[in-house]
């Protein structure tokens, strides 16, 4: 089995290059995840750089591009990937080292949509009562709050590739939508108005790369569609 990894060390390389590793097929079981393989390779070659933490797909550290698709290495089975696996860093981000990318723009875009609950001042200060929410209202948040900020979606989105500093990208818009539809948030109109710009919500073209890439099975494209509807409805 061949593993091709795009390597880059800013201290010694002028540009990224592809390194080929060979692995015995017998070392790969039916249930071997890609991260285990990378950990094996790191024992052979301690200079190999990649991030990881929880190893079960909830922390979002190890987003990478494998055979052209963005995924989390810890929940990606090796066997279905074939005999030749090409691993690249997440596209569109500056490469720091090997598979480690600089995600600052991604985090900034997340921060820019003000992804925090702005509830009623009075209710939010009451330590004796929760802000009530019906199960139906709460159900609307399913599919939005589970995002793990792995950036698999945004780094597969052409609109984000072109304008990562202007366009929030699918992850940030998914977060924006999560607070727009939260019944406890009282700033819905402000939120909608701030997203009503050519380079914000309406830069999304719904090509749905984000939805295809999301390792948690979320659908940012549909959430952005919902956002657009809400913005238009708010206008009229």
């Amino acid at each position: 089995m061949q593993i091709l990894i795009d390597r880059y060390n800013p201290q010694s390389d002028s540009a990224p290059y592809t390194q080929t590793y060979h692995l015995n097929d017998a070392e790969v079981g039916e249930d071997t995840m890609l991260l285990e393989l990378l950990q094996q390779l790191r024992i052979q070659d301690p200079t190999l750089g990649f991030r990881s933490s929880c190893q079960e797909g909830v922390c979002g550290s190890d987003g990478m591009n494998v055979n052209g698709n963005n995924c989390l290495s810890c929940i990606t089975l090796v066997k279905p990937l074939g005999d030749k696996i090409h691993i690249r860093p997440l596209p569109s981000f500056p490469i720091i080292k090997d598979l480690i990318v600089d995600m600052q723009l991604f985090y900034d875009q997340y921060k820019n949509v003000e992804p925090f609950l702005k509830g009623d001042e009075h209710l939010s200060r009451d330590p004796e009562h929760e802000i009530l929410q019906t199960p139906e209202e709460r159900e609307k948040l399913d599919g939005s709050y589970e995002c793990i900020l792995c950036a698999c979606c945004s780094s597969s989105c052409p609109s984000f590739w072109w304008n990562p500093d202007l366009f929030p990208g699918p992850a940030a818009l998914l977060a924006a939508n999560r607070f727009v539809i939260d019944s406890r948030d009282i700033t819905t109109i402000d939120r909608l108005e701030s997203l009503d710009k050519a380079e914000k919500a309406f830069r999304c073209r719904h090509i749905q790369n984000c939805t295809a890439a999301c390792p948690k099975g979320l659908n940012p494209s549909r959430a952005i569609q919902g956002l657009k509807h809400a913005i238009v409805k708010n206008r009229s």
């Binding site: 009503d196 710009k197 050519a198 919500a201 309406f202 657009k228 913005i231 708010n234 206008r235 009229s236």
Partner: peptide, 9 residues
Amino acid sequence: LTGSKAHIW
């Protein structure tokens, strides 16, 4: 003509 206005038009 930007944002939602552009979208509507």
